[in-house]
């Protein structure tokens, strides 16, 4: 069970990235490669709040939420907005990779390459739950991820704004004709994605430390989560992350650490071949 818990913790990290990818993808049709870096920045913002400024945790979370949301909005303005007029998804891949590189470079220049430990608000003595051991912060991370993932899934299905974003993902021009402000929606999606990353920064950082290389690892595995769960499906991304995490943990535990990714790839192919339509969100089928 401890292995499963460990998988769920890692899975939660991957899910968070997948949620970030999907939020932006659904609202503006762009794959924001820099989302892993936004989470990395969130851990630094939380470090600043909790250690440097000695803020109580609610203020730390608030500070990180706002800070990372602002970074995300700036990213949208600089790297995405200029491309919107021409709907060139490949150029967006390049610019978001560029934004991602800038963020990790800046983090390294300003904070150095060593891991920084965050101040944790609660005791982190391991708990034994269902026969497995897990740190309280990690448990909170899993719960928060589930809450955010499910919340955003239902919100996007029920609320007007959520439906509007689905409409934009489906067809930007048509949505725009129907009076949806696609630009505002795009900025909003970046802000929300950044805000979510910021809000979870303390929980993520408690597990991973604040370290510049975090962004790249997360970006990659968030992509795996998307591959398993389906691009453009919030629920798929959430589950994809957890499934990936558990597969990673179990195969590292029982097969050996050269194999987790190979096993995940096997699962990916199996899903692809058995449910070719189910795993990809509708949004993606039209884009390419």
């Amino acid at each position: 069970m401890t292995t499963i818990w460990s998988g769920l913790v890692i899975g939660a990290l991957y899910s968070l990235v997948a949620i970030g990818y999907n939020t932006v993808l659904l609202a503006s049709g762009v794959f924001n490669f820099a989302h892993g870096q936004l989470i990395m920045l969130a851990t630094y913002a939380s470090f600043l709040g909790s250690v440097t400024f000695h803020l109580p945790w609610p203020l730390t979370v608030l500070f990180a939420t706002i800070a990372v949301a602002v970074v995300a909005i700036v990213e949208e303005r600089v790297a995405i907005r200029p491309l919107l007029a021409r709907r060139d998804i490949h150029a967006a891949l390049i610019t978001t990779v560029g934004a991602s590189t800038v963020m990790s470079g800046l983090a390294e220049v300003t904070a150095g390459s060593d891991p920084k430990q965050l101040a944790i608000p609660i005791s982190n003595d391991p708990l034994t739950i269902l026969g497995g051991v897990i740190a309280p912060m990690d448990l909170l991370l899993i719960i928060a991820t589930l809450a955010i993932g499910l919340g955003i899934h239902f919100w996007s299905r029920r609320s007007l704004l959520g439906i509007a974003s689905l409409a934009v993902a489906e067809n930007r021009d048509a949505a725009s004709v129907r009076g949806i402000d696609t630009k505002l929606l795009g900025v909003g999606a970046f802000a929300v994605a950044g805000g979510i990353a910021g809000a979870t920064g303390l929980l993520v950082g408690a597990h991973t430390y604040a370290i510049p290389s975090l962004g790249n690892s997360l970006a990659l595995f968030g992509f795996v989560a998307i591959a398993i769960g389906g691009a453009g499906s919030q629920l798929g991304g959430l589950l994809g992350g957890f499934i990936t995490g558990i597969i990673f943990a179990l195969s590292a535990r029982y097969i050996g650490s050269d194999y987790p990714q190979i096993v995940v790839f096997g699962v990916f192919l199996a899903v692809l071949l058995t449910r070719p339509r189910g795993i990809f969100g509708r949004a993606m089928e039209r884009v390419v």
């Binding site: 597990h207 943990a249 590292a252 029982y254």
Partner: peptide, 17 residues
């Protein structure tokens, strides 16, 4: 022995192994 990737974020499975 067991190995880990430098991108790993958790070592529990390897240690359990």
């Amino acid at each position: 022995s067991a190995t880990y990737k430098e991108t790993s974020l958790d070592m529990t499975p390897q240690l359990q192994k």
